[in-house]
């Protein structure tokens, strides 16, 4: 048997492993179309999904604002402890998210280091949800943006400086325009990851409910039949946003190269 055939077989197993549960969620729901229609008309469900998308948007905004300088520094600068900082960036991916929630609660909780002095309330509030989302999704943005910065030849920036541009101007007129696709893709990944977060959010802010908490809550109280339609709605909503942005990015790329 050829190596390519073996690889194709093994790859198919993994692809099926991912597709099957999602596909099964949809097909099972077809036997209860009435339930899906009812959920579709449920104002509370839509409000929760839109609230989740909004919280994820805020989290992504912070990830871009603070993560871009960090990604650039990691891509362009050598400094002592760089490996440690890189490790810290990846930490949220490694630790269990419930543990992340507990850690965040100890900082942003009413008796925590920041929560005790901050005028902003984090526990059971939007800021708490955003903080939890940011914690788990920032690595996705930082690592993608970092790859983008690393892919640019530093010569472009050096030449721009010899033409009279300050470091600041070079960053906005050369570096960002050359990396915007990585930045946009990273932001999109970060947003998608934030929307799907549950473990950290449920510890710091069970209320107001985000989509994943609502699905969990309905599952516990009313079972699979009540929670599955919301899951489908969340999948469809996230996918449509994801695909729309991807298509826009792809069209932007085509227009640029033509």
């Amino acid at each position: 048997m050829k190596l390519s055939t073996i690889f194709a077989l093994l790859s198919s197993i993994l692809v099926l492993f991912v597709i099957l549960p999602v596909f099964s969620t949809f097909t099972t729901q077809f036997s209860d179309l009435n339930g899906l229609v009812q959920t579709f008309q449920d104002y509370d469900v839509w409000r929760t999904i839109l609230f989740t998308a909004y919280a994820a948007f805020l989290s992504t905004l912070f990830a871009v604002l603070f993560g871009t300088p960090l990604a650039y520094t990691l891509a362009r600068t050598e400094f002592p402890g760089k490996n440690v900082v890189s490790g810290v960036v990846d930490l949220p991916v490694i630790i269990p998210h419930v543990v992340a929630g507990i850690a965040l609660l100890s900082v942003f909780g009413s008796k925590g280091m920041i929560g005790s002095i901050s005028p902003v309330k984090f526990v059971d509030a939007l800021p708490g949800i955003v903080v939890a989302m940011l914690f788990v999704s920032a690595p996705f943005y930082i690592n993608t943006a970092r790859e983008g910065f690393q892919s640019i030849n530093p010569r472009f920036e050096q030449v721009a400086r010899t033409l009279g541009a300050t470091q600041f101007k070079v960053f906005f007129t050369v570096t960002i325009p050359l990396t915007w696709r990585h930045i946009a893709a990273g932001a999109l990944m970060s947003w998608a990851r934030a929307i799907s977060e549950f473990g950290a959010i449920v510890i710091i802010a069970y209320y107001p409910m985000v989509a994943s908490t609502l699905i969990y809550d309905r599952f516990l109280n009313s079972g699979l039949q009540a929670s599955r339609p919301i899951s489908i709605l969340l999948i469809l909503f996230s996918l449509s946003v994801f695909i729309t942005i991807r298509v826009l990015l792809w069209n932007g790329r085509k227009n640029e190269s033509s």
């Binding site: 472009f156 541009a165 470091q167």
Partner: peptide, 18 residues
Amino acid sequence: PPEKRHIGFLPQDYALFP
């Protein structure tokens, strides 16, 4: 810094902004 030197620089690959 380079921007205050008034020196033109052409690298080997020209580094034209793509």
